[in-house]
Design a protein around this nucleic acid. Structure first.
Lengths: 231, 231
DNA sequence: TTGACAAAAACTGTCGACAAAACTCTCTCC
DNA sequence: GGAGAGAGTTTTGTCGACAGTTTTTGTCAA
């Protein structure tokens, strides 16, 4: 009666999905307190399912809980972001290596076509907003999936890329970078066509290292701490 | 009254830790049903905390839940194990690369000492039970920690290595392999001493690839499906 | 024996209530 | 004025009960 079995999902599942999406979208910035009563009222449910959703988020390491105190959206530093970019470099390099051995010729043609389409798009020709935009992601996702490694695909597409969004991570989209990125994609594809796993991995890692270096520079420049209003 | 606040941990936290340990130790084989009532009675608590513990395990992907049906210890295939070994290769290779740049000379001396100690131990000289045993793990853990990458360390030491245990994963400890492993460790350390990140990563990955190849062979040999008793 | 169908049992999902811990605010004393 | 103690409030932790769904059991017929 009360639980309408919406789409076969329980209230706890739906609360989890909503909260996860909210955190990833950035609606709940790092450090935000997750008040059980408040959320339960907002969802129109009791605290039980909300608590279960929070526990699941805790397992996902998206929120940190302190007993008898409460749960907060996990706090992340710029150093953590850079750490994650190193991890992405290693994992996606491996994915590219595996894909090079396993991808079919037909799929390689698809990738070629994808790059050609990207090249003809206006924003790319204008020199910006390609890198790390949907077009760029498509290319990366396709390669990851062609790795044929399910665990790796899951880890990258369902965990790591979501986490990077939590950091409000935006890759450097400075003028001219998009054309460079496109060229790097072409180099990756060429290595894959040549069925050269070592080179393909190397190209992918070099490509990704640019994002990491941008994050490094951002850290060097130093993000000023916000002025604290003295009460 | 009921919750004695044991060590500052809640009942749900303690249930989680107990279940996690049980799954990792292998006391609960893959596919085991986690019955809420049964567990609650065994723990001497109510179903609420047990459910929260299960939700957390679900977030950790150690158990799989189906709404209105129940939670089971996540099922893993041999293919998944191999997938994970590829991931370990990529991540630990990166860890070794980073450690090569960041480790101190003093810590390098420590590692050298560790290997010397391993070499003098009887089991190693006998040619077995070194590879993937505590001694081997020590060496790997030390290098991972020297990477200075907190996310990477956490991912490897707290997630991946536990997962490998879930698979009852035992690296090939066949006769003579332990001496090879020791030599490979020496090669890794030498590359780190030479402050050559490329070589260090390459050596580490090559070292780890042996475990993966062993798992591959095991898969090739084919695990016979068990005879099903016909009632 | 096998199959379908219905009743019953078992289990999961949700709720509301109570207890315990942490936090807040006030008051007091130095 | 500030540190500390204490009462009151707020929030989290746990429990027992009930409702809904799935699974099992039991029955009957082909």
């Amino acid at each position: 009666m009360k639980p309408p079995a919406f789409g076969g999902l329980t209230l706890a599942d739906r609360a989890f999905e909503w909260l996860e999406a909210a955190i990833i979208k950035g609606d709940y910035p790092a450090g935000t307190k997750l008040d059980e009563v408040e959320l339960a009222q907002a969802f129109g449910i009791s605290r039980g399912p909300v608590r279960e959703a929070i526990r699941r988020l805790e397992g996902r390491k998206l929120v940190e809980r302190i007993a008898h105190v409460g749960a907060r959206v996990a706090k992340r530093s710029q150093a953590d972001l850079i750490d994650l970019l190193y991890i992405r470099e290693a994992l996606e390099g491996m994915a590219c290596r595996l894909a090079t051995s396993r991808i079919s010729d037909a799929s390689l043609d698809d990738l070629e076509e994808l790059l050609a389409k990207h090249a003809s798009e206006k924003p790319v020709q204008a020199g910006d907003s390609y890198f790390q935009k949907p077009g760029d992601l498509d290319f990366h996702f396709r390669i990851i999936q062609e790795s044929g490694n399910r665990q790796l695909t899951e880890m990258l597409c369902e965990d790591l890329y979501h986490l990077l969004r939590v950091y409000r991570y935006k890759s450097s989209a400075r003028k001219g970078r998009s054309l460079e990125a496109l060229e790097e994609h072409r180099a990756i594809l060429a290595a894959m066509r040549a069925r050269d796993p070592d080179l393909a991995e190397k190209c992918m890692r070099q490509h990704l290292s640019h994002s990491r270096q941008a994050a490094h520079e951002e850290q060097e420049n130093g993000v000023r701490p916000p002025r604290l209003k003295r009460a």
